[in-house]
Design a protein around this nucleic acid. Structure first.
Lengths: 254, 254
DNA sequence: ACCTGAACACCGTTCAAGT
DNA sequence: ACCTGAACACCGTTCAAGT
């Protein structure tokens, strides 16, 4: 009744599926087109500006027309999340098959998701907080195909079922925390258009440490932090394997 | 103009401040009372049910009455986040002064925030995603007082300014990722009231690894995961200190 | 001084009606 | 087959009016 899964086309009668041709009506409307437009709209105008009527206008249509292809606003947002996460499939730097070992695999997956987060900073909070379909679907890796893939790679590499699941959980937490904070920092600089008014950086007189450390806190070390934390996580994961099977040079030598 | 800081009472003329007595009008209305009621309302009914009119009714008042004490809905939400995070100050297990070393301090802080997240699972996504006031205010540790406190403890313990800032960033990412995923998992079990219909756990026939690992994925290991990841983070942080000053038994002996 | 009624602009959603 | 106009219930917010 609520949140009917969008784009799971199994049995779902969409106008396009009925029409024989993959084509569209006179307005070129289409579920794919609507979801893609929604992503672009959020990228350009921010999540809070997305409204059924405005998205309709963005598509040259009257807003209620969207309900022919989308069950409602909630389902639309679910579709937006799915659309954005699915970009991982077409990322040339993240080849499912062409990885050399689980370390390489997890690194590519992590960087692929980071690229998505940075490409859609306004969408990412949605990826992070939308209630998942199943309890074990953890943001930001919300695709069954990728979870399956990750678990397969890990178990093939010699991790026990328990450990593979633990790695999946740790990996999700790491990605979610880092990426959500990185896009939030991105947003706060370009975000609310307020004039600094009188105080250029508020009143920090009561906070001497904050005041002294402000230069250190304001530098954007997101990329380095991400890399370091990822390496630390991989080191920790490697310890789950019997010594013999551990990849050799995990501890950076640079 | 937007998001005027609530409860920063400096110069803000509230009815209570004008009335001499700390008391209230005939309805007992009050900014504190409104924010506390909003938190309770979200705890009980969920964030998406919170509306000005419903919150008004919850307080026995007409909804527009709230605008006398709160600039608007956005500011109300900011106030809710601040209210919940401020619970850390009155947590008896998290004493600012009575800590023995930075390890103990970070552990107490982490567990205090985890307690808050679990106490208000419906509020926490708000804590996680509300745009922070300054770029270096990172969720979920959104209080200037606590950031100041953390930086002070770390530098006093011998960490450089750069390293103290790095620890603050790593600590925030760790907390955000773990706690957001933990409350999300909590919500998905009690969340949407759907009937399982026909398929008790969807169709996993195309995902053999998922299918086989489902028991491992469904167990709630949040507490253990949190503890382990926290220990790993503390170990990693300790390496930033010169060997001499490192706390002795960080690697668990259990 | 504090709350309410009425009003405004906007929202999501449904459905009969147009083409 | 596809889109729109009109309608409904609900929002956030403002403000003159009540007590």
């Amino acid at each position: 009744m609520e949140d009917p899964d969008i784009s799971q086309a199994s049995g779902g009668e969409t106008p396009a599926s009925r029409a024989g041709t993959t084509g569209a009506g006179r307005s070129g409307l289409d579920q794919r087109r609507i979801l893609d437009a929604a992503v672009r709209f959020i990228d350009e105008n921010g999540l809070r500006m997305l409204t059924m009527q405005r998205l309709g206008a963005y598509l040259g249509v009257e807003g209620m027309a969207l309900y022919r292809y989308v069950p409602g606003r909630e389902a639309l947002l679910d579709g937006v999340v799915e659309t954005v996460v699915d970009e991982l499939f077409s990322d040339p730097h993240v080849h499912l098959e062409a990885h050399s070992g689980w370390v390489d695999y997890l690194q590519r997956l992590a960087h692929g998701l980071r690229r998505i987060a940075l490409a859609h900073p306004e969408v990412f909070p949605l990826v992070a907080t939308r209630p998942p379909a199943a309890p074990w679907v953890r943001p930001p890796l919300r695709s069954l195909r990728w979870i399956e893939s990750l678990l397969g790679v890990m178990t093939d590499a010699g991790f026990s079922d328990e450990n593979a699941a633990a790695v999946y959980r740790a990996f999700s937490s790491f990605l979610l925390g880092h990426l959500l904070l990185e896009v939030a920092a991105h947003g706060v600089e370009t975000g609310p258009v307020e004039e600094p008014d009188v105080s250029p950086s508020e009143d920090l007189s009561d906070y001497p440490n904050l005041q002294r450390l402000e230069p250190h806190l304001s530098v954007d070390a997101a990329a380095e932090d991400f890399e370091e934390a990822l390496e630390a996580l991989l080191d920790r994961v490697a310890l789950l394997l019997p010594r013999r099977r551990r990849p050799a040079r995990l501890t950076k030598d640079k």
